[in-house]
Amino acid sequence: MTVLYVTERGASLKVKHQQFQIYHNSEIQLSIPVNRISHIVLFGSCRLTHGAMSLALRRQIPVMFLSYQGRYFGRLQGKIAEIDYLQQQVKNSLNPEFRLRQAKSIVAGKLSNSWILLRRLNRYHQQTEVKEAIAQLADTINKIPQAESIDTLFGYEGQSARIYFQALGTLIQDPFQFTKRTRRPPTDPVNSLLSLGYTLVFQNLYTLIQAIGLHPHFGNLHTPRHNHPALVSDLIEEFRAPIVDSLVVYLLNSNIFIPEDFTAPDNRGGVYLQPSALKIFLKHWQTKLQSQITHSHTGAKVTYQRCLELQVWEYLTCVLGEQENYRPIQSKM
C-alpha cells in the first residue's frame, strides 16, 4: 500500500479500469491500481473527478487537500467511528485518572524520543549547549510520573520543546539557521520542512485512527474542542523527533536542499518549498516511512508506516481496557 501524492498545478485525478490516473496538460502522467493506494494527498489546484471521488469513498480511501505550501484544507473520508468504541472513548474522556495516565505516557514518549535524537545527533559534535539540553530533558522526563495534572504536563512539554528546538538549531549546518519553532506561517526553511512533515504525519495518523473505527476528536493530553482532532494530536507526539525532525536535519545537513529551493518570504513572512523541491521532499519522505526500525514493544523489524498503524492499535487496547497505560514507541540510540 502506498500514498498517492498529486503535486502538479492543474493536474486531474481520474479513474479508469480500477486504476487511478493522473493527467496533466491532457496527458497521462501516472496510472496505479486502486487496491495499491492507502490514501491520496492533493496539493493546490489539483482536480478530483466525480468518478475518482466516488471510487475513493466506496473503497474507503481518504483524500486530503493541502495548499501548495502544505497547509491543511480538509479531507474526504467516508468511514465514521464504531459506536462501541465511541461510547468507550466518551466514557474515558470523562475519567480524569484515565486521561492523566495516558497523558503522562504521551508526554514521556515525546520527550524521550527528543532526548534520544539530540544524543544521537550530538554524538560526534559534543556541543556544550546540546549536552545541557539533553540533561534538562532527562530531568523533566524523571518528573513526569509525579505530575498531578494535565496542566503540569503541558508545562513540562512546552518548556522542553523550547529547550529541544534551541539545541536542535545548533546541530543544523550553514547556510540554514534555526533558532525557534514558528508556525502559521513557518518563517524559515527549517520551520517550513518541519511544518510540512508534521502535517503529513498528522494526516497519516488521522486516516489510521478512522480506519480502525476510533473517533479522532477524543484525546487525553489534548482535549476535544471545535474542529480539533485531539487524539491525532496525542498520538503524533512520539513520532515528531524520530520521523520528521531527524529527516529534516538529514536533508539540510546532507545538502539535499539549498536556500534557493525555498520561496522568499510572502506578505505574512511565510517561507515554503518550491514546487520542484516539494517532489524531492516527498520522495525522501516515502523512503523515511518505509525505513525499518525495531519496534520497542514487539522487538520485530517494522517500517515507520507500520509503526504508526501499530500505535493506533496500541491505543485502542487502552480504550477497551485491555491494558492500563498507553505505551509509546521509544527510539534506539
Rank of each mutant, 00 (worst) to 15 (best):
I32E: 14
L231Y: 01
Q286A: 10
T287M: 14
Q29L: 15
L86S: 01
T199D: 05
E309F: 13
L4Y: 01
Q102K: 09
D266G: 12
K288Y: 06
L196W: 00
E314K: 10
R181A: 05
G74R: 08
R162V: 02
H125G: 07
P224A: 02
L235W: 02
R99T: 10
H222E: 05
A11F: 07
D266H: 13
K110S: 02
N113Q: 10
L310V: 05
F165I: 04
K104E: 08
V63T: 03
I172S: 02
G74Y: 07
G197Q: 00
R99H: 09
R58H: 13
V6F: 01
L235H: 03
K283P: 04
R71A: 14
A161G: 03
P242D: 02
R9G: 10
Q159R: 08
G44R: 07
V248G: 04
Q60I: 12
A81E: 01
L55I: 00
A81I: 00
T140M: 04
R58G: 04
Q166H: 12
A167Y: 00
A11S: 15
L168Q: 01
E238H: 06
L221N: 05
E27Y: 11
S105G: 15
S54Y: 02
S291C: 06
K143D: 13
M333V: 12
L118M: 05
P275Q: 09
F65I: 14
F218W: 03
T170D: 07
I293M: 12
R47W: 10
Q19C: 09
Y250M: 13
L273K: 10
S160P: 03
G169R: 00
M333A: 13
Y250W: 11
L208N: 03
Q88T: 13
F20H: 01
L30Q: 13
A161R: 06
S26E: 14
R327A: 15
T140E: 05
Y72V: 04
F165K: 01
F154C: 06
I32V: 15
H217I: 01
E8D: 15
G219A: 08
F257V: 06
M53L: 15
Q18P: 00
E129I: 13
E324H: 11
A167T: 03
Q292E: 15
I258R: 12
I150Q: 03
L30V: 13
Q292D: 08
S246E: 11
Q136S: 13
V201K: 02
L100P: 12
L168A: 01
S331F: 08
Q177T: 11
E237S: 10
Q323G: 08
E322R: 14
E8L: 14
S112V: 05
M64H: 15
F218C: 00
Y72C: 05
H39M: 05
A81H: 00
L13A: 03
S192A: 15
A241V: 03
D151E: 14
S31R: 11
H125V: 11
P265T: 12
R9D: 14
T294L: 11
I293C: 11
T140C: 02
Q290I: 06
H39L: 02
S114D: 09
I258W: 04
V41G: 01
R162K: 12
L86V: 03
Y68F: 12
V302G: 07
P275W: 09
Y23R: 04
V3A: 03
F281V: 10
Q136F: 05
K79I: 07
L282K: 07
K288E: 09
S31Q: 15
A167V: 02
F43I: 10
L121N: 06
E324G: 06
L282P: 06
I141W: 06
